[in-house]
Design a protein around this nucleic acid. Structure first.
Length: 479
RNA sequence: CGGGGUGUAGCGCAGUUUGGUAGCGCGCUUGGUUCGGGACCAAGAAGUCGCGGGUUCGAAUCCCGCCACUCCGACCA
């Protein structure tokens, strides 16, 4: 089209030109979130909130199936309480916000706005747990937390973010370990099955584990630009917190014991992962399971007699098999096509006079723009099939991207070559020493993402120091 | 927290060098014509020029301070 019209404001920066700008363009133009006057904080718009609600419902269902109960804890933590566990406070103190006044009165003890609620749960567990019969306690809360981050980006890193945090205590270490693994599995299932995001499950190194945890498990996803995004974590605390907070119960042996504890969380950051795993230069691409609208009906020549009636009838029928919207606004069809592509609606259904004549409609899958001509009397059975095709299609694309960007490093030369030329995951063997992890960071700019549960034997020595290797590590650059 | 960039209508920007009535495109409102890939015509509404101070007869423009956003590092979900 040879016209000299300016670029429309709705146009999205191509991801090859400027990935960061592409990302924020999508956040704003797909109407997911907006900035607010509070430093580093975002407004999650209705469309973004609807996505989060869908994720939340899926996760909440899984938690409840496995016996967890929701609770609501205070948003403030007294300074003294936060300081009870040494590693924990050291990890979080630098980034907490403090409340110093109530009204005009200065508080005797300042309160921090929760950055995470381990301390509050521990204080509470100490009160309500007295016998082995009380165990396990399987609690979860949906809330927002506050971390005074230096630099922020919508969904990926904001001063306040929404999440769920599960906190459980158990009679035995084995039970708590099983819980930690089970909850990581929940997150992995959510990502793989519902969000169509392939993840690597593994354990964090000591350097990267949660402040106060004995072990941290993680799922790591790879974004379009090759960077890693930690998409969910599950921690095993042993009895460290229980000792610090004096949580005890009388055991079957009539003696006092400390319970074993876990915590696990997934945040609105996962929306950032969806954007950067599936999105393209036309906008967002949503996995059907969490798309606010799974299909949008665009009537063509809607002023012509019969078109809107047919569109409304189609909508009523489809409402029984999926979340569907019909757009009868005055905007031109082309405008609607672009709009719903930007919003990542998995299926677009075009219905015009020609279709009605032929007893069909045109269904276009968002991720590849493939057109499917579907008979109107078969539409109810075809939609679920096409939604599944979208899920499988975008999963496959994401998996291929990850595989194309995953490399193996057998020597420091190979590691440096990867660092200079590639962005993605690098698998190497590792001796287990912090020193080598530090060297990896300083020389190659890579941090350990995890030690995958699925280990591969890539050699006998740590390529960084030459000493015998203990585990395989996946390295990368992280968000 | 270190280094760079940017703040002018809802969004994207011009105007700042050289001080002199605040502009353009998109969007929005109303009416009409359109409708299978971001339609067209006409008429309209909308701005404490990020905030605070200073210089000046006069500041979007010059000076000082602050704030926010953003990119690149360090830190984190």
């Amino acid at each position: 089209m040879a016209d000299n019209k300016k670029k429309m404001v709705e146009d999205i920066t191509s991801m090859d030109v400027d990935f960061a700008k592409w990302y924020t363009d999508i956040v704003r133009k797909a109407d997911l979130a907006d900035y607010s006057s509070v430093r580093g904080c975002m407004v999650v718009r209705p469309y973004g909130t609807a996505i989060w609600e869908n994720i939340r419902n899926l996760l909440d269902g899984m938690f409840k199936e496995t016996g967890h109960e929701n609770v609501m804890m205070p948003m403030f933590i007294p300074e003294g309480l936060l300081q009870k566990e040494k590693d924990h406070v050291e990890g979080f103190a630098p980034e907490v916000a403090w409340v110093t006044h109530g009204g005009s009165e200065k508080l005797a003890e300042r309160l921090c706005v929760r950055p995470t609620s381990e301390t509050l749960f521990c204080e509470h567990f100490a009160k309500v747990c007295s016998s082995y019969r009380d165990l396990p306690m399987l609690y979860n809360q949906w809330c927002s937390v506050c971390r005074w981050e230096k630099t922020t980006r919508p969904f990926l890193r904001t001063a306040e973010f929404w999440w769920q945090e599960g906190h459980t205590i158990h009679e035995t270490a084995e039970e708590a370990m099983a819980e930690t693994e089970q909850q990581l599995e929940c997150y992995a299932r959510l990502c793989e099955e519902y969000l169509a995001i392939p993840v690597i499950k593994g354990q964090k190194t000591d350097k990267e584990k949660f402040a106060g945890a004995e072990r941290t498990y993680t799922i790591e996803a790879m974004m379009h630009d090759g960077k890693a995004l930690q998409s969910g974590t599950s921690h095993y605390f042993g009895d460290g917190f229980a000792k610090a907070f004096d949580i005890t119960y009388t055991g079957r042996d009539n003696k006092l014991h400390h319970p074993h504890e876990t915590s696990w969380g997934m945040s609105t950051r996962i929306i950032g992962a969806i954007i950067m795993t599936h999105g393209d230069d036309n906008g967002l691409v949503l996995p059907p399971a969490i798309a606010p609208w799974q299909a949008v009906i665009v009537p063509i020549a809607q002023h012509k007699p019969g078109v809107l009636d047919a569109a409304n009838e189609l909508k009523a029928r489809l409402a029984k098999v999926c979340r569907v919207k019909m757009d009868d606004s005055d905007n031109a069809p082309g405008w609607k096509f672009a709009e719903y592509e930007m919003k990542g609606v998995p299926l677009r259904i075009e219905l015009g006079p020609k279709d009605i004549e032929n007893g069909q409609c045109v269904v276009v899958t968002r991720h590849n723009r493939e057109k499917h001509f579907v008979k109107l009397d078969e539409i109810e059975s075809m939609i679920p099939v096409l939604l599944q095709k979208v899920r499988d299609g975008i999963y496959q694309i994401a998996l291929e991207n990850r595989e194309n960007r995953t490399f193996v490093g057998h020597s420091m030369e190979e590691i440096m070559k990867f660092s200079a030329e590639q962005s993605g995951f690098l698998k190497t063997m590792w001796c287990g020493e912090l020193e080598c992890e530090m060297k990896m960071k300083e020389e190659a700019g890579l941090t350990s993402r995890c030690m995958p549960f699925e280990q591969e034997n890539l050699g006998d020595v740590c390529p960084i120091c030459g000493k015998p290797a203990k585990t395989m590590v996946v390295w990368g650059k992280a968000y």
